[in-house]
């Protein structure tokens, strides 16, 4: 199968704007709410959302990076350990509403690890999940997103390729492709 484009830069911007509006509907002026991007790629989306929210609300939004590597459930079950990334959470989440942000929701296992990792920073009042792409009917764990950019129906042999400017790409593109097409 050829790779199929899910998002180009323009559509991505529209979707991020819509997700920001939805967040404001639920969280008002973000007084008691924080964003937490999941490493490695969720942080780019989290940064864009936080920038948009800061423009819309004209205030500083708390944003953290959460790395779930040490909390994953597939340790010792892969050929090599996953390289950890930086966790940067300069605030406590005790009593706060936390919005976890990731690019793709697939099996739900990363989100489970994130919920586990998050506990190190306090007990949140509420946790929500925002994902740009929801791969429906693929869950191993009962986890669902609160905010979704786009729902797609995929099979296991496919993967989502996220190319963002932050990763050094010339422009933003998100594709769906067969795994064996990877060169």
């Amino acid at each position: 199968m050829q790779k199929r484009l899910l998002f180009d830069g323009r559509l991505l911007q529209f979707t991020i704007n819509r997700l920001c509006q939805q967040l404001i509907e639920n969280h008002g002026d973000f007084t008691n709410s924080v964003l937490m991007g999941l490493q490695p790629r969720g942080i780019f989306l989290a940064e864009r959302i936080s920038t948009s929210l800061e423009t819309l609300l004209n205030k500083k939004i708390l944003l953290g990076y959460l790395d779930t590597t040490f909390h994953r459930d597939d340790f010792r079950r892969r050929d090599a350990p996953i390289a950890p990334h930086e966790t940067k959470v300069n605030f406590v989440i005790e009593g706060k509403k936390v919005i976890l942000i990731d690019d793709v929701l697939f099996t739900g296992r990363s989100v489970r690890a994130a919920l586990d990792a998050m506990v190190s920073f306090g007990r949140p009042e509420k946790v929500e999940l925002l994902t740009l792409i929801d791969r429906m009917y693929s869950r191993d764990i009962p986890v669902e997103a609160t905010y979704v950019g786009r729902r797609v129906n995929t099979v296991r042999s496919q993967r989502i390729l996220v190319e963002l400017k932050e990763q050094g790409m010339p422009e933003d593109n998100i594709w769906i492709m067969e795994k064996e097409d990877e060169a």
């Binding site: 040490f70 909390h71 994953r72 950890p84 990792a117």
Partner: peptide
Amino acid sequence: QTADNFKDVLNRPIKKVPS
């Protein structure tokens, strides 16, 4: 590089990970 991340873990209030 891995130790950098663990050093960060060791400076948190909860210094333990389940790996």
